[in-house]
Amino acid sequence: MPATAATAATALPADPMVPVPYRITRVARELSDTFTVDLVPARGKAPFRFAPGQFNMLYVYGVGEVPISISGDPADGARVRHTIRAVGTVTDALRRLKKGAMVGLRGPFGTPWPLDLTEGCDVLIIGGGVGLAPLRPAIYEVLNNRDRYGKVCLFYGARTPDDILFRGELEKWRGRFDMFVDVTVDRATGRWAGPVGVVTQLIRRGGFDAYHACALVCGPEVMMRFAVPTLNEIGVANDRIFVSMERNMKCAVGFCGHCQFGGAFVCKDGPVFRYDTISKLFNVREL
């Protein structure tokens, strides 16, 4: 007898291919094309636990499914939070959903940011655009356990001052005495009095111990391609750089083959990779 997913989730080990209904409890607009939704399971129990860097597959009824990184605090057991940029059919549909609407959720999937390995190191968090969203759980985790890490630097690049994601939080973090935050924009508009340029330039201005630093990098692939040599140049070796890759994740469990990047399935062997393990492939075109 076929079981509904809600009962199956309690009775059987959940089939990773079958979405579980979740309900939207809050929608917040972040930017003109970016928004955050909070989700709780439609039936009973608390949401799953996740590690910073992991993603879910979100399904909109009758439209389709997309991979979305989790952007919330891993210590928050009450809800799961996703920050989404509308860039296609499904994300457009997600944007139209209101509080109370239901989505299907699978996961969490994928490898996390290696926050255990980075303990004791200076932590460089380097984000570009909406790439700050998958990094935010790592920032929370590091700040929740601040004494385990050395210097913490966040370098963030956005298109314009109006495209700076989580601006309020960035300002709050910037006000902390135990964290260095610098933000740059490609194009200055309005009354922006901060740096203009690319995020790689911020890295050079950093002021951290490059030889005892680990870098977590997430943004457009081209940004990562330029960030890595800059990190190398100042002394951060490839085996201490972690990047989050983006490919066409469809099944999220390594069956469909769409997200292959060389020998890796980005959905289950990634999305977070230690850079030296993929460095040979990173600059191969159309791989």
Binding site: M1, A3, D15, P21, M102
Partner: peptide, 12 residues
């Protein structure tokens, strides 16, 4: 489609 949402069934 169900009241306020939808239900998912996976075939055995």
């Amino acid at each position: 489609r169900a009241r306020s949402g939808f239900a998912v069934e996976a075939p055995e």
